[in-house]
Amino acid sequence: MTISAAPDVVLDHLSKADGSASYSYAGYAVTATVNGPIEAQRRDEQPFEAIVDVIVRPAAGVGGTRERHLESILCSTLRHLILLKNFPRQLFQIALQITSVPENDYVNSKLMQASSSQNLSVLPTLFQTAILALVSAAVPMKTTASATTIAIPKDYGSPLLNPTPRQVQTSSSIHVFAFTRQGDLLLSQSDGSFSQDEWDVAHDIAKDVCMEKKREEVDVMLDDDESQTQNMADLIRAEAQMKTDSDLHWK
């Protein structure tokens, strides 16, 4: 299974939430809603900044430790992006529902009974959906960011971008990176055994995918016809621009 389909994005499709997004890529699909700034419960509220509440729901069944782990990673990453100091005593609620996960043809596994490495590989999709929903909810942020997964195969082959479950299983390590549009590292989670050099290679590939290209570089890339991989930052920009254009058509 190779991932040839372009990412699929729908913004602001749920009318009752302040912002929402659906995003599917590499076999994973996630729907997110964002509400905020809303009133935090008295016992939770922080006097000087807003709190971020991330809820991850699996494709089937109720969430467990695995989802709590993903929530804590996402929460600590998103806290760096949202301007929390502008909303003391408030709450931003981000709910993420996984709607589909890629099937592993080699293992007859139940839905969402994944190993810890597969647990990591859903993280970029969750993160990307959360960012799109935050943009749709017009939550004030410092910048936008994107995430991706890299797998290093056991046979020392070239690193794989957005690996399939089978590729994850047969790889020696997988890495999840999130970068801001400006190219600052936000999140780095790795699983398996790897050397510093392998990590560096994975880091550089992920940075290339997540960081926004300068205008001139994009033109050069188009000329070379090498833009096979989807740049995540460009995707967010294109979707947000489309939404803004349709929102402001009364202008």
């Binding site: 909810a137 017009a138 803004t244």
Partner: peptide, 22 residues
């Protein structure tokens, strides 16, 4: 936020137009 930037030179102001959110 994501939106369109507008300016008013007479009032010396700059702002972002956007729709949505709370």
């Amino acid at each position: 936020v994501s939106g369109q930037v507008y300016t008013d030179n007479r009032k010396n102001s700059i702002w972002v137009e956007y729709n949505g959110g709370r």
